[in-house]
Design a protein around this nucleic acid. Structure first.
Lengths: 218, 218, 218, 218
DNA sequence: AATGAATGAGGGTTCATTCAT
DNA sequence: AATGAATGAACCCTCATTCAT
């Protein structure tokens, strides 16, 4: 048994400035990924965060570790939106589908789509650091969809993966574009997609519903 | 008097092997952009094409010139699909919306979405080499949509840019994914989006219709 | 409030080793330009300086920036010689023409001629970084010549540009030569040229005196 | 005994167009070396000559072989000038020193100095192809100088190498310059140098006279 | 014989990562 | 703990040279 699993680890409390630096790095990284795409140099992220480049490596072993942290941070924020939607549906504050619509637009505003470009070929989406967050996100979205499905507002032939993928794809910026008013288009297209999700189904879908298992297989 | 000093340079028909190489390079580039994203090294493209790296530069002045050729090649193929759709609608072979559906799925199979990742920040989408092809594409898609609109099958609050952007976004591979069966998802999500495009509209869309002018502004 | 966000960036004194590296790079570059000509690979310069290639780029944005620094460094040293010559003439330590002779030979020993080959076609001799140094050099040489001219020792039909060009040309190594005893020839030929500069003039010169304006026009 | 030394070699007469191409290549190379410096790509030379790049290699085994041919061609032309000068001196058409002056300026107009930059570090000035031409050149210049020396017009402490080196150095273009009116400066500075060569000597020269042996040693 | 095309080695430059202060 | 500096591997691109028509 090593220290990592020991019940009482000696964790010297992190210094306040170290914590602040870590947060600033993640925030800067998220902003710059959104703004400049996945290839932004780490040195630039460090500069935006106001720290030296080596400080980034003190907090994150390598580029992927930083990316994971950013993914996790966005995942958490989006999951919170989904959970809020569930609450709204359960309290009757809005219909389940309305809650779903609200959630989708909110997730887009969190730049969930901007995360995708970060995921370089080398990125491992199944990394342990991410599972907890992803499960929380999936469960909450699933809960939201299930309520809409039960209410007969959501077509029955789609699964949570369908929504997640489309949300990511439609929500990400057009490449080669720093186009800030792309937002308008994003919300239009999400709205159209949501219309396509409504029951009754207007067409037969090819393939099988994108469950989470299906997404994980690749 | 000899040909070398003659005012008009003799333009000897291009050699067969050079033409073959050029095509192989473009094909390899298209495949590798789809498969590995926009940052794939030119050396790898050359290897896949079975030529030396410098041969790529003989045919294309720099990376952007190659990218433009790939974009042009896909643009042409997709425009051909759209024109075929127009013909089908005009002959009554299918309804206009059915022709639109067929076109959208065919365009996805041509990997139109894979073009997006190629468009790095440095890429100039307004390059003269591209205008003709883009206009042909836009006109044909517009023609197809106009027929569906007139038939009352397509909601009236969208424009050609809306379809093109969504088609590109939904049609491109999830980043960090070599996932070959992503195709199934792509067609599902396009189908859902198309359902959202049908008249009557099921919701009010935010923003203004994405005309081509709007797309060009960024 | 922390230093990172403070308006005035703290400029911590440059690290000792960085300064040392910078100087070593410039020195190595000067030596290798003299020895191997203008096309010497930067990697070789880095090797001679005992640093990695990228370190060169940390200190100098690109090849031209390094070349400029070398030019500046030689310019300064040569200007110092000219100023010393002026002082010698003014104190009567030597005649003005003797001071001029001494200066010319000293400038050759500083390898002023070796600078020329560095000036590739891409090099911009009017770069702001260089103006101050060049003006100092020109003024000091002009001062030296003026004294010799007034003393009636220097022929009247030449200007400062004539001397500078000839000094550069005669002082540079024969190309394709690592010939170390070329120095002997250089000083012989400069001496002959100086003899030609003495008053009274032995021939009529074609063209107009090479003033600095004339040199800058090209 | 092989064909090379056989008394009667089978030399299929060169085709007329091949001879013409060879000459055009050498001419183009000389012009472009003068105009653009030593690094001009062979492809550009081929283009200027109006032939394909491979044709250059049919005539010249590699870049150095072409350079040698250009050197030889200029050498011949300059030697012819020197021989004409000797004749002028011998017939009393002009004084020996006047003939020397005329020769020096003519040699500069033949761009003898422009050859220098071609001589990259790899270039071998002692190649057998060049010896005959160089000897002819040296002998003719030596003859011209000897006549001026005997006439008491040329100082006694210089040798043929001194003149050749200075002529090459002063006659070559300032680097980084396509400056066409550099010619004016060139002739001024050669004139000054010639003044320095006149007897009586105005100073004592350092080192030993640059004989041809001295030049060959390096 | 001449050509257009192909090649591969090499240079400049960038950037993720490691080192020394 | 934090930093500026250093590193080397990898990429894009050029060009002398060779190959195939």
């Amino acid at each position: 048994m090593d220290t990592a699993t020991a019940p009482q680890r000696r964790v010297p409390r992190p210094r306040a400035d170290a914590v602040r630096n870590r947060e600033r790095i993640v925030t800067a990284a998220r902003e710059m990924f959104v703004e400049f795409g996945p290839d932004v140099p780490l040195d630039e992220i460090a500069r935006r965060a106001g720290v030296g480049n080596a400080t980034v490596y003190r907090h994150f072993a390598d580029r992927d570790a930083l990316v994971r942290q950013v993914v996790l941070s966005v995942t958490d924020r989006v999951a919170a939106h989904a959970e809020r939607g569930i609450a709204a549906a359960d309290t009757g504050e809005s219909t389940a589908f309305e809650a779903l619509r609200t959630f989708v637009h909110a997730a887009a505003d969190e730049r969930i789509g901007a995360l995708c470009p970060m995921l370089s070929a080398a990125f491992d989406p199944h990394h342990p650091d991410l599972t907890e967050g992803r499960e929380r996100l999936e469960e909450s979205i699933e809960g939201l969809m299930e309520r809409a499905r039960r209410a007969g507002e959501l077509r029955a032939d789609i699964a949570v993966g369908d929504l997640m993928v489309a949300l990511s794809q439609l929500g990400r910026p057009l490449p080669g574009t720093a186009c800030p008013d792309m937002d308008r288009f994003i919300h239009r297209h999400l709205q159209l997609f949501l219309d396509g999700l409504m029951a009754p189904a207007r067409s037969e879908l090819p393939g099988a519903a994108a469950t989470l298992e299906a997404l994980r297989q690749h």
